[in-house]
């Protein structure tokens, strides 16, 4: 197996004092940024254990909110639906997005500029507009379908997933393209000269090189899907509620620490998934 070219990366051999000072400054910056990123998360997690029912003050430790959460089938179901949609749409949009990025960066073809514009539109479109357009589209095409085949479809997790894929593909494409730019094509040519076929070249040369971009794109897609409220609301159907919709409604009355609790649990699930995948990857 070819060694991944990525391993040559961290170039730390000729480390002089200036460079290490630079790295130190970068490290300090990173720590500060992490503090900024995690400050609200610490608050959020801590306040899932507060006794205060407003969830805005620390008045003592309790596990009560978790107990109530576990009894709330509705909220748990919504959380599972959300994870399901986020995972499915991330997988599909990452694959499609990577393929599209390859096509856009490697080839010149007629209509490329047009397609380029089409690719940016889902990023540019205001969410409410895409949501209402999809709502009209699904309702209309389900009507036609029923007329033609008698099949009666209903909006639900399927339509939400389709919609999420449609708006996350573009984000994946943008990130993967950034890593494809400046890609040294000679590496691929070299591999082919050495007798590697198309697929082998892709798997052993191209993929490892653009993998950071792909992972970045997938992470973006996952994050966007988890948080989306507007498109989700308009493309879901009876009985399939998702977490953002549930939480938005709660703002009207009061967000209780129960919501902090479910956020904490989802954080734990996500982190576990990440560590599992890391673990598996390292074992291979």
């Amino acid at each position: 197996m070819l060694d991944t070219p990525t391993t040559r990366k961290p170039y730390v051999t000729g480390m002089d004092s200036r460079r290490s000072a630079g790295m130190l400054a970068l490290g300090a910056h990173t720590i500060l940024t992490m503090v900024f990123l995690y400050a609200p998360i610490v608050v959020l997690v801590a306040f899932s254990f507060t006794r205060d029912s407003f969830g805005v003050r620390w008045t003592g430790f309790t596990l009560d909110w978790y107990r109530r959460l576990l009894a709330d089938q509705r909220l748990l179901g919504a959380a599972l639906n959300t994870l399901y949609v986020a995972l499915t749409s991330t997988i599909v949009s990452t694959i499609i997005g990577t393929m599209t990025a390859l096509a856009m960066e490697r080839y010149h073809f007629r209509g490329r500029t047009g397609f380029d514009a089409l690719l940016y539109l889902p990023i540019v479109i205001p969410e409410i507009v895409m949501a209402l357009a999809l709502l009209a589209f699904f309702a209309f095409s389900f009507g036609i379908l029923e007329l033609l085949s008698g099949l009666r479809l209903q909006m639900g997790l399927g339509t939400v997933t389709i919609a999420h894929i449609a708006f996350t593909i573009s984000f994946v494409v943008v990130v993967v393209r950034a890593s494809l730019k400046g890609f040294d094509m000679r590496l691929e040519e070299a591999a082919q000269d050495l007798g590697a076929n198309e697929w082998q070249t892709f798997r052993h040369i191209t993929l490892p090189l653009i993998l950071p971009g792909i992972i970045g794109g997938a992470l973006l897609a996952f994050t966007l899907s988890l948080d989306d409220f507007i498109i989700t609301f308009f493309t879901t159907g009876p009985g399939t509620s998702l977490l953002p919709v549930e939480v938005y409604g709660q703002v009207k009355r009061a967000i209780t620490p129960k919501i902090n609790a479910i956020s904490t649990l989802m954080l734990l699930v996500s982190i576990t998934l990440v560590f599992l995948s890391q673990f598996i990857q390292r074992r291979r």
């Binding site: 990123l37 995690y38 609200p40 998360i41 959020l44 992470l219 996952f222 994050t223 988890l226 948080d227 409220f229 977490l243 953002p244 939480v247 938005y248 703002v251 967000i255 919501i259 902090n260 479910i262 956020s263 904490t264 989802m266 954080l267 996500s270 982190i271 990440v274």
Partner: peptide, 11 residues
């Protein structure tokens, strides 16, 4: 990315 896997409103 992990901070962004909590709910937006709660954040």
């Amino acid at each position: 990315l992990i901070p962004f896997w909590t709910n937006f409103l709660v954040r």
